[in-house]
Each structure stands twice: as C-alpha cells, then as structure tokens.
Design a protein around this nucleic acid. Structure first.
Lengths: 323, 323
DNA sequence: GTGAAAGCGCTAACAA
DNA sequence: TTGTTAGCGCTTTCAC
C-alpha cells in the first residue's frame, strides 16, 4: 500500500472529460466571455467531480498576478499589529486572497526589500505600514501594484490610504487631562520615523515638554523618569502608545507616587493589555481590527478598478483608571 | 512624463547580454550543474546590471514549488502566537522564504481549507498549529508537502514536530504551588481540542478539580468563579494559559480576596502581559520566539532532504508575585 | 457560443 | 563546460 501517486489534474483533463475545449473550461471557471448556461454547468460539475484545482503558477504566468496580497508591518510582536493583522486576514480570506506577511522592524532597507519581494512575487496588491521608506520609493512601489498605506499620507495619487485621526485622538487625550485639572502636560513620544503628527498635535493642543523613547514598556519607564526628572511640575502625561504609557505607569508607581493622583497617564491605541494593568490605562482607542479590514476593503476596490481612496478612522477616548 | 513602461527582463535578455545560453544563466543563478567560475561571474554581473529578477511563476511552473512557506495558526490576536510568528518570520527571511499566514480559529473546516489552499499554492512547506484537524487529514497533508506541526504528536512518520514539554511545565507549576504550602489545587483548563496533556499532567501530579473555560481573560474570570464556587477549599490554581490566569487573578481580586495570600495562581506561556498585571503573574515560560524559529529550522532541514525530526523545547518556571 | 493556436519564463534532460 | 529541445498549465487573441 503506497501513497496515491498524485498526478495533477489539468484543465485539459477537465476539457476532455466534459467534452469541450480547454478555453471553454477557462471561461466557465472565470466567468469571462460568452458561454451558455448549460455548458457552464456541465463544466463546473466536471471540475467538481475531478477535484480540479487550477495551477496558481500557470495562471500567474499568463496574468502576471497572483491571488496574494502582501501585508507589511514593523513588528508582529508589538501588540498593536496582531489586531490589525487579524482584520486583514479575515477580510482577505473573505475575498479569497492569501496574505504574505513581511516583518520590517520599521527599517528602511527591510521595507524596500519587502517591496521588491512583493513585486517579484506578483502579488495582486500590497497593504501596510511603511514607517521608514521615503515617499519617492513608496510612490514607485505604488506604480508597480495597487498599494494601500496605513497611517501615512499618500506619497502619490495612485496610492490609497487608511488613517486613524491622530489629531482628534491627541486632542481627546489632552482635553481629558486638562479637564482633570492638569495644567502642565508632558509627552512621551515614540522614537518612530514619519510619525510626527501626535507630537505636533500635542504641542499645538497642550504645549509641554516632549521626551522621545523607544515605543516599548522599557522605553516608557525610562522616558518617564527623564521627563519628570527634567520637568518636575508635569502632572499629566500623554504617551505615543500604550506600551510607553504602561512603562510610564510602572515608573510612577516605582517612584512611590500615585496614579492618577500625583501623575495621570493617557495612552494611545487601547491594546488588550491596557485594560489589564493596574491602574487600568485611560487611552485613546483606535479600532485596529477595523483598520485591517478597511485596508483590505480599500485594496479590493482598487483591484476592482476604482481609483485610490482615502479613509479616516475616528478614535475615541476610553477612560479607565490612570487619568 | 509618464511612468516608465515596465517591460520584464527575462532570462533570455540576460543570456543575450552575457553572450551565453539561457540554461547557463539558470545554472549561474541556481548554483546547479557544472559551470566555470568565469562564466558564472560574468552572468551574475549581467544579472545585476540588468536588474533581472526571475519570475516566480515561471520557476514555480517548472518546479511545482514556490519559495513560500505557510504558517497555520488559530488566532494571531491571541498574544501567544505573534511571538511565535515573529520567530517564524525572522527564520524564514533568513532562508529567503516568504510566509503566508492562515488564521483558522482552531476550526477543523478552516484548517482543512487552509491545507488545500497551501497545496494549491505550491508552498515549499507548511508549519503550524493544527488544533482541530484529525490525524488522518493531517497525515494526508504531510504526504503532499513537508510539514512541521507544533505542540502536537506526529500523525505520521513523514510529519515533523516541535513541541514544548507540557508535562515538565505542568509539574513545574504544581510543584511550585505545593512548595508554597497549597495542598488543594484546582485547574482552569482551556476549552481547546487536542490539548489534553496539561490537564492529564495536572491530574497525575496534583489531582484536583478541573474547570474548562474558553482560553481568554473573560474565560478565566468566569472559570475561577465556578471553580471556587464549587470547591471552596482550593487555594492554588493552575491555568492552561496566561490569559485564563489573568482572568482568574482579576476574579480573585474582585471577590475581595488576596493573591497570592488567599489564592495563588500560576499561568502558562509567559506572554508579555504576564509581567505587567498586578500582581505580576507567576507562570511557566515557553520560548515562543524559539518555537517559531525552530519550526522553520526543522522545515528547512526537511527541505534539504533530511527525514522528519522531532524537537522538544524545555519550559521553565518564572516566579513573580501571583504564587 | 466555441475552438485552435500561440506563448508567458523558466528548468530538466539530453546532446554536443 | 555549455547549448538545444521540450514542455510545465494556463489565458489571450483570433477564427469559426
């Protein structure tokens, strides 16, 4: 008893079995060109019967396009991105698209290399977070295939975008801190390329000292120490993301001070962890799943021949215990 | 001014430019067959010069194998998996493999469908967590392509495995609780298919009541209430994973009782969140990144013609505040 | 509405 | 060591 020799069922086998030509089979399965309902049905039945699966390679060779979309992101281990990715996977699966993930660490070289790999692979399109690549390179990529970028301005009319409204989100945070009586605010900004909006919005809205740190828990701890060390009068802290905010929370507590009594902290993103730390983090919620879903939706419309769209997702403040 | 018309550079263009045959170009870039060092260098230089990129489709059509590996997992939004995925991405990138991710929600139908898609796409191999698919179907998949499964016994000699040692991990947890003076232990088991090991190990090692709940924070909260409601004498709780454990922590605190004073909790996995909750979670650490890396390594050896291997990763206990 | 011919770009097998 | 031949399975003309 041996494993069944798997000889590939080709379009010709189906054609022969259904008593039609090869192109008729192609027409039946792709729904293109004129074909009588009767033949169509017969062919489809034969396909089913023989369990025929068209070769992605052969098809790609003709069309120069695979049924694959690329998802580019800095770090899947950063809790913001899995939630986005989940939205991408679900929406892509619903459209019958496979998703190839490229992890770049927000490195310009890695992002460029990912772009090259994506083009070489003949992906139907690409979506993602390009945090280091310059506009020219991004626009060039957008000329090679349908491209939707997240949380970044379009470098080019051909590139679609989906953005979360940082300005509003930041206002939400600083207004909340102000409403709690904090007059001197500080910001923990993430050391991330191409993301000046939150800082700019903070400076406009509240105008306090800004310390830059890696967007991690450890970065938040170090950053907060530096911030309060240099500006002892700061009582309200706005962080670039929740990881930084959680680090800040820990630093405040470690210094023997109270949150939010002595120092209030507001984060950004509302990652799962935010609700579970002590005190629970007050943060600006962005719908990460929806962001992922929308990226695919916008790409899908692009694939269907529509022009590049630009969507914006509205954030909202979630008040918990930290501010 | 128009976008540069992108006419594809083919192997024939390179051959012509280098003054050799098409096959020689193929040999030069794939390092197969005999070729003189001089020609090889010349061809490689020409490739560079023309910026030639071989067509993945054409290559796949000949070889019936793409430079792609599939990663199958239940839910990228569950914090255990991003860490594994990161290890997979890094190791795959180092081998020049692209990674296609299939999110299955541990649903048997979705896992089967993912398998079909993987085979159809001509993936070089597949790795992942099949939590619902039966052994027969898994073995069948393993016959179609190199397959490495995580945290599950091999269904077949052709299927390689990488597992974390649940038995040892569970012992570590129950022994620790015992050493802290807890005589009556309970377990919060995850409602997950094909994962009886932790429960079995718990029953053997400590033998207390087991409550099953969805492996989430909410599940842990509900599960702990049920556990303590039915078995008031339980003072030490072992959870299937950290999410459940964190939920349990919250339930204990919500009931006005102390952790670890009244009830001690030990989790499993050591997700990032574990160190950040209050009290910090004592948990069994498994190296998720290493798991992902090893999955790719074992697949790579398979791809290089070696037989299916079986690796086991050792867990270790991380004592924090909750037990 | 359907079929025949052509060819996408590559590599395995064989010939030189 | 290098070149030639053949063909992977599909879709896009174009003819009927």
């Amino acid at each position: 008893m041996e494993a069944s020799r798997s000889v590939r069922v080709t379009i010709d086998d189906v054609a022969k079995a259904a008593g039609v030509s090869r192109q008729t089979v192609s027409r039946a399965m792709n729904g293109k060109g004129d074909i009588s309902e009767a033949t169509r049905r017969k062919v489809l039945a034969t396909i089913e019967e023989l369990d025929y699966r068209p070769s992605a390679f052969a098809r790609g060779m003709r069309t120069q396009r695979a049924g694959t979309v690329a998802l580019v992101l800095p770090d899947i281990a950063n809790p913001f991105f899995p939630a986005v990715a989940r939205g991408v996977f679900d929406a892509a699966a619903a459209r019958g698209l496979a998703v190839v993930v490229h992890n770049t660490d927000a490195d310009a070289g890695a992002e460029a290399e990912a772009g090259r790999a994506i083009v070489d692979a003949g992906a139907a399109g690409a979506i993602g977070f390009f945090e280091a690549l310059d506009d020219a390179a991004l626009a060039a990529l957008g000329r090679r295939l349908p491209l939707v970028v997240a949380d970044r301005p379009a470098p080019d009319a051909s590139v679609a975008t989906v953005r979360t409204d940082f300005l509003t989100g930041t206002r939400l945070a600083t207004d909340h801190l102000a409403s709690r009586g904090h007059v001197r605010l500080g910001m923990l900004d993430g050391a991330v390329e191409n993301k000046p909006e939150r800082r700019r919005a903070f400076l406009e809205a509240a105008g306090g000292p800004v310390v830059t740190a890696p967007p991690t828990v450890a970065g938040g701890t170090a950053g907060l120490r530096e911030l309060l060390g240099r500006h002892a009068d700061v009582t309200g802290v706005f962080a670039f993301n929740d990881l930084l905010a959680i680090g800040a929370l820990r630093a405040v507590k470690a210094a023997g001070r109270q949150v939010p009594g002595d120092v209030a902290v507001v984060g950004y993103d509302d990652i799962t962890m935010a609700a579970l730390v002590d005190p629970p983090l007050t943060t600006v919620h962005t719908d990460k799943y929806e962001l992922g879903r929308t990226l695919v939706e916008v790409l899908g419309r692009r694939l269907d021949g529509h022009p590049a769209e630009h969507r914006t997702l509205a954030p909202r403040l979630v008040v918990r215990g930290s501010a």
